[in-house]
Write a protein that binds this DNA or RNA. Sequence first.
RNA 1: UACCCCGUGGUGUAAUGGUAACACAGGAGAUUUUGAUUCUCUCGUUUAAGGUUCGAGUCCUUACGGGGUAACCA
Length: 564
Amino acid sequence: MSEAASPTASLDFIREMIAADVAAQRNEGWVITRFPPEPNGYLHIGHAKSICLNFGLALENAPQSRCHLRFDDTNPTKEEVEYVDSIQEDVRWLGFDWGDHLYYASDYFEKLYGFAVQLIDKGLAYVDDQTPEQMRLTRGTLTSPGTASPWRDRSPAENRDLFARMRAGEFKEGEKILRAKIDMASPNMNMRDPAIYRILHAHHHRTGDAWCIYPMYDFAHPLSDALESITHSLCTLEFEHHRPLYEWLINNVDGLPGQPYQREFARLNLTHTVMSKRKLLRLVKEGLVSSWDDPRMPTISGMRRRGITPAGIRNFCHTIGLTKYPSLSELGLLEHCVREDLNKYAQRVYGVLRPIKVVLTNYPEGQVEHVELVNNPENPADGTRKVPLSRELYVDADDFMEVPVQGFHRLVPGGEVRLKYAFCIICQEIIKDAEGNILELRCTYDDATRHGAKPVGRPKVKGTIHWVSAAHAVDAEVRLYETLFTEAEPESAAGEDGDFTQFLNPQSLETVIAKIEPSVADSKPGTHYQFERVGYFYTDPKDSLPGKPVFNRTVALKDGFVKK
RNA sequence: UACCCCGUGGUGUAAUGGUAACACAGGAGAUUUUGAUUCUCUCGUUUAAGGUUCGAGUCCUUACGGGGUAACCA
């Protein structure tokens, strides 16, 4: 893959560590990583960072490497098959492949149960009868140690019996819990006898009703990693304090096939959006966006629907690097990566977003000619296409100014502009209705300025604009997206008690009926285009129909024209 | 007010004790029948104070700043 680190490029701290492990022949030089989502929601661009890291590592360290996709499905009350499916689709779409290595933590429930019994036998786990409330109270605080549960010193035999009865369904939820016996006075809250198995009389999307006790993340995760012989377990910074517990389990459970270790990196933060599942859910639930795959959402499915490309996302993830610094990346960088990708292959077409009619008064009525346009100047192999041209046209309202500002060199009254690949026109007259709205521009064209012709003694026409033939143009719904939020950091701007939704951008979606050249009328849903001089657009995979196309603006083109 | 992690241009990263570099963004210019692309130039940086050293962004100490942590969530 082009974005893979070249041998000369410097390594981030994770890759450096892994390179050292490989050099030292740790695990015989194997690098086995995993991407371990909980199937309780849709993936977003933050997950993409982790996906690119874990799957990227496998690619970079081939052939002694692989990356597993493992669903961390240990909480049946939150998980659904729908998410299992969408996550797989998203990872594949991003361009990665787990081969045969698709796993579920729930596949290990029996083994995990055995490991818990092992800890009980070693006197390293006990069944606690305290209520969740009592446990919270006796755990202590950030500044004071916790106190031991009265049940902390039950014998292994009693614990084993109780744990078996938990599994058998003899107790109600919250009545009993299995805890690791570590250190109630540890400054690390995670080491204060963490819960490792709880009672949940819930239906699991894969194991059905086979279980009524489920392992906690802190217990299941390291042991699942070990069972899959994962060598490097990479997660985000908020799990840093869980590392001692991760290592405690790896060190205290016997018979593990692998000895993984965990390292943490900073999660992705992006300007002008929110990333937490809870907040994204709120946007969907309150109808502030249309769905999880609303093109304004930072979800993978939303970005896909918007026309953001996998390579664009991968390059973005590569460019932002990997550190422990809690950075905030600019949305503009993602947009740059997407433009850079699309520029290479998106076919150019003409689309007029805000049409103004132009009548060429000296062009023969009823005449139609076909102008040859280049499909992609970046790639001549893409060839050309013919686009009809006639007496009545549409040009973009943005390309006309009745009272031009300084530096504006498009169409102005009495001024000349080039219709790209056709000829130059001069605006002779503005026709308005009673309210003063512009109805049409009456222009004359100059046959001597046809494409390729180099008339001598004429001042160079600075402006070149795109156009469509009015009679031939097709109406298309075009969705123009802006940032979802007006603030770069909506959460911080809202403050502790504030509501981030107050910074929702009222202009984040504008729908217009555009006039597009006829060649894209039957565009296949899911096709990328560059509307010349305007931006990159994507035929909406859900709503676009042949003959009735719908376009989403992926990202606008950079506009070098700044009004003074 | 406990513990852990982190501080390099506006943003994101690099420099592995030896000339602070790259990308994005911003600015200027060239090219251009996309005000795009491409190309050139430019802007601007080691949080602070001590210490170690011939030499510190890098090692040590302290301060300051930012983030994280007290689910039977992951």
